[in-house]
Design a protein around this nucleic acid. Structure first.
Length: 474
RNA sequence: GCUCCUAUCGUCUAGAGGCCUAGGACGGGGCCCUCUCAAGGCCUAAACCCGGGUUCGAAUCCCGGUAGGAGCGCCA
């Protein structure tokens, strides 16, 4: 039987970082085994599910490149199938009607909690040999409950956490269909996983306690059990649980911050999983090496600094052609036209060493695509001095003579200029930088000028001289 | 309260009883290189939650604490 894994989010919000990691792990497991990966939308909660959330999840998955091998499955489109299985279970006696009202159930829970017991259904409508059930009340639509075994244990042999034993007597008879006939989560999951031939259920470890019930339902149905792997959650940098209220960000926000999707994936895969001392993995390496048994079962914190580092490693070595579309996206986001300046790949090559994110790269490259918005005050005060201004004026005259506006030619010109005057390169490069970039930070000065182009460079030198001269005289 | 899970540098982790004087990476500190910012190179500080066992030997196995977390819905 070939491997099939799934990612099954409920569409109540964007795809967050924890979900992305779970999706990635599922994806890797399937691919590693040469199997299929699929996406299932768990939207049986009509109240909270939204189309916007569904779209946001698709968008996030697409950006990350986690492609589903089949069309996505929506649970709300499978109600007929769920009803069919429920009818079978009712007929087989593995499920039964319960006429308790919500009020009765609330009272039951309250009493149990008062007695410091674990709140659970007491089985008053559960049919037993020789037991007389209460009279069926009028006007109470029944729910359907699963008849959970009372004896024995359920052993969940978790691929990450190892064997976990649950006593059946700890489990109560959960509701599998509401009074209005809509099936509940724990039931839908089971039927779906069964129908879709899911061999690997990989999900957040908040589902561990649901698993024994799901296993019991699967057994009652005579279905084969999938293998389970429960992934621990991701905590915020402060060790607190991530929530919308507290630092939980959608995957697309990481795009805005300037992450490459592959880099985010690489950071995420190392959060909990390791392969010796290796930190960087291509997607193919992840697929070849990923192993659930090497995934840590304890929660991990999200460390932005390390994520940035990983991203930087990617920016430094990835083919500029691959980076280009993302870089383009960031430049446009800052309101500039990427056509109004040097070729993007050349800029990437010049900037990648000094930028941890694409957002940073775009910002630092703005001067190549748009007019300067004034000079950095401190840098101008330091470098656009009387002396600096004179230097710039002289240099401008010499640069005008440079016929071949290339990095090597400019390198020669600027170096000779400094040499002739007996100045260190820094004495010359810094004023130029401030003049053409607006501040004292940029790629090497020859590259910077080459990228900027002859016309813009000369114009900016003129502008800087004009800006500095009256101040020097004053 | 009950059930289940977890516990190595600040962070992510290596570690499957002797290879551990506990390794790597991020981040921190220092030095070198240098036209700026980076990048790079070298060096450095920094951890086995506590207590009992088992064993010739325990970060590793067992038990008990402690501390975190998850679940206990006609939510998913």
């Amino acid at each position: 039987m070939s491997a099939v894994s799934r990612f099954a989010p409920s569409p109540t919000g964007f795809l967050h970082i924890g979900g992305a990691r779970t999706a990635l792990f599922s994806y890797l497991v399937a691919k590693r085994l040469g199997g299929k990966f699929l996406l299932r939308i768990e939207d049986t909660d009509r109240e909270r599910s939204t189309q916007e959330a569904v779209d946001a999840i698709f968008e996030g998955m697409a950006w990350l490149g986690l492609k589903s091998d089949f069309a996505p499955v929506y649970q709300t489109q499978r109600f007929d199938r769920y009803r069919e299985v429920i009818a079978q279970m009712l007929a087989a006696g593995t499920a039964y009607h319960c006429y308790c009202t919500r009020e009765e159930l609330d009272a039951m829970r309250a009493e149990q909690q008062a007695r410091k017991e674990k709140p659970r259904y007491d089985g008053r409508w559960r049919p037993e040999a020789g037991k007389t059930l209460p009279p069926i009340p009028d006007g109470v639509p029944p729910v359907v409950r699963f008849r959970n075994p009372v004896e024995g244990d359920v052993i969940l042999d978790d691929l990450i956490k190892g064997p976990i034993t649950f006593a059946n007597h700890e489990l109560d008879d959960l509701i599998i269909a509401r009074a209005d006939g809509v099936p509940t989560y724990n039931f839908c999951v089971v039927v779906d996983d069964w129908d879709m031939g899911i061999t690997h259920v990989i999900r957040g470890d908040d589902h561990v306690n649901n698993t024994p019930r799901q296993i019991n339902i699967l057994k009652a149905l005579g279905a084969a059990l999938p293998q389970y792997a429960h992934v621990s959650m991701i905590l915020g940098a402060d060790g607190a649980k991530l929530s919308k209220r507290h630092g939980a960000l959608g995957v697309m926000e990481y795009r805005t911050m300037g992450f490459m999707p592959e880099a985010l994936l690489n950071y995420l895969v190392r959060l909990g999983w390791s392969h010796g001392d290796q930190e960087l993995f291509t997607r193919d390496e992840m697929i070849a090496l990923f192993d659930l048994s090497k995934v840590s079962s304890s929660a991990a914190r999200f460390d932005m600094e390390k994520a940035y580092w990983v991203n930087h490693q990617y920016l430094k070595v990835t083919d500029p052609a691959v980076i280009e579309p993302e870089f383009d996206w960031h430049l446009r986001r800052l309101g500039v036209d990427p056509a109004n300046g040097p070729a993007l790949q050349d800029v990437i090559l010049a900037q990648r060493e000094r930028c941890r994110t694409l957002a940073e790269m775009a910002e630092k490259s703005l001067f190549l695509y748009a007019d300067l918005q004034g000079y950095n005050e401190k840098d101008a005060a330091k470098h656009l001095t009387d002396e600096g201004q004179r230097l710039l004026a002289e240099l401008r005259a010499e640069l005008q003579l440079v016929a071949d506006w290339s990095t090597p030619a400019l390198h020669k010109a600027v170096n000779r200029f400094a040499e002739v005057r007996g100045l260190g390169l820094g004495k010359v490069a810094q004023p130029i930088r401030v003049a053409v970039v607006g501040m004292a930070v940029s790629p090497p000065i020859d590259q910077t000028l080459a990228l900027l182009g002859r016309e813009r460079t000369l114009a900016r030198l003129d502008a800087a001289v004009a800006w500095a001269r009256p101040r020097a005289q004053a």
